[in-house]
Amino acid sequence: MKEVIAIVRMNMMNQTKKALTAAGVDAFFAHEATGRGKGFVNPQVLSGAEEGYEEAASLLGEKGKLYPKRVITIVVDDDLVDTVVDTLITTNKTGKPGDGKVFVLPIKDSVRVRTGEAGIKSIS
């Protein structure tokens, strides 16, 4: 089993839900978050701010704000990982900064609380 964590734009959430369902993934978690990638920070401005230049620090305040995002967490069988990742990328890629990130992590085990089923049975 793998956990797929995706950070996507807020306005892409409905399309992402539909695409995941079409790909055979009905169960997932989504929650609101704020953040930014390194692409939103000019390295020269950051360097100037670190050196104590007030002008650079004020510019960093404008460019360094946090942006609203959605974090989607999906636990799937190993066979579905590539499909899920491809679906997330295809649905959310605009070619502009802020499209998001996808992380894939191993899951050692899981247990469904209601039935006690473990492993892959607990997520299917």
Rank of each mutant, 00 (worst) to 15 (best):
residue 3 E to G: 07
residue 4 V to T: 10
residue 6 A to S: 15
residue 7 I to Y: 08
residue 7 I to W: 02
residue 7 I to C: 02
residue 9 R to Y: 02
residue 9 R to G: 01
residue 9 R to N: 07
residue 10 M to G: 08
residue 10 M to Y: 13
residue 10 M to F: 08
residue 11 N to H: 15
residue 14 N to P: 00
residue 14 N to I: 06
residue 17 K to N: 00
residue 17 K to V: 12
residue 18 K to I: 01
residue 18 K to W: 02
residue 18 K to T: 08
residue 18 K to S: 11
residue 18 K to N: 06
residue 20 L to E: 03
residue 20 L to I: 02
residue 20 L to H: 01
residue 21 T to L: 13
residue 22 A to H: 07
residue 22 A to F: 05
residue 23 A to P: 07
residue 24 G to F: 03
residue 24 G to T: 03
residue 25 V to P: 06
residue 26 D to K: 13
residue 26 D to I: 00
residue 26 D to L: 12
residue 26 D to W: 08
residue 27 A to E: 12
residue 27 A to T: 15
residue 27 A to F: 11
residue 27 A to W: 10
residue 28 F to R: 05
residue 29 F to V: 01
residue 29 F to A: 09
residue 31 H to E: 01
residue 32 E to C: 00
residue 33 A to F: 00
residue 34 T to E: 08
residue 34 T to S: 05
residue 36 R to K: 06
residue 36 R to N: 02
residue 37 G to K: 00
residue 38 K to P: 01
residue 38 K to E: 05
residue 38 K to G: 04
residue 38 K to N: 03
residue 39 G to D: 05
residue 40 F to N: 00
residue 40 F to H: 02
residue 41 V to M: 07
residue 42 N to P: 02
residue 43 P to E: 04
residue 43 P to M: 00
residue 43 P to D: 04
residue 44 Q to W: 04
residue 45 V to T: 14
residue 45 V to L: 05
residue 46 L to F: 14
residue 47 S to F: 12
residue 48 G to L: 02
residue 49 A to P: 01
residue 49 A to S: 07
residue 50 E to M: 14
residue 50 E to D: 09
residue 54 E to Q: 09
residue 54 E to G: 01
residue 56 A to F: 03
residue 57 A to T: 10
residue 58 S to D: 11
residue 59 L to V: 13
residue 59 L to K: 15
residue 61 G to P: 04
residue 64 G to H: 05
residue 65 K to P: 06
residue 66 L to Q: 11
residue 66 L to H: 05
residue 67 Y to N: 13
residue 67 Y to I: 15
residue 69 K to E: 02
residue 69 K to Y: 07
residue 70 R to T: 14
residue 70 R to E: 13
residue 71 V to A: 00
residue 72 I to G: 04
residue 73 T to M: 14
residue 75 V to L: 07
residue 75 V to R: 03
residue 76 V to T: 13
residue 76 V to A: 10
residue 77 D to S: 15
residue 78 D to V: 09
residue 80 L to E: 13
residue 80 L to H: 13
residue 84 V to W: 10
residue 84 V to P: 09
residue 86 D to C: 05
residue 88 L to I: 08
residue 91 T to N: 10
residue 91 T to P: 10
residue 91 T to F: 08
residue 92 N to W: 04
residue 92 N to V: 04
residue 92 N to S: 06
residue 94 T to N: 09
residue 96 K to L: 14
residue 96 K to E: 14
residue 97 P to D: 00
residue 97 P to H: 01
residue 97 P to K: 02
residue 97 P to C: 03
residue 97 P to L: 06
residue 99 D to P: 03
residue 99 D to Y: 00
residue 100 G to A: 01
residue 101 K to V: 02
residue 102 V to H: 02
residue 103 F to V: 05
residue 103 F to I: 06
residue 103 F to C: 07
residue 106 P to F: 05
residue 106 P to I: 05
residue 107 I to V: 15
residue 109 D to F: 04
residue 110 S to T: 15
residue 110 S to E: 06
residue 110 S to V: 15
residue 112 R to T: 11
residue 112 R to S: 13
residue 113 V to I: 15
residue 115 T to K: 08
residue 116 G to R: 14
residue 116 G to F: 10
residue 117 E to Q: 14
residue 118 A to N: 06
residue 119 G to M: 11
residue 119 G to A: 13
residue 120 I to K: 13
residue 121 K to C: 01
residue 122 S to T: 09
residue 122 S to M: 11
residue 123 I to S: 08
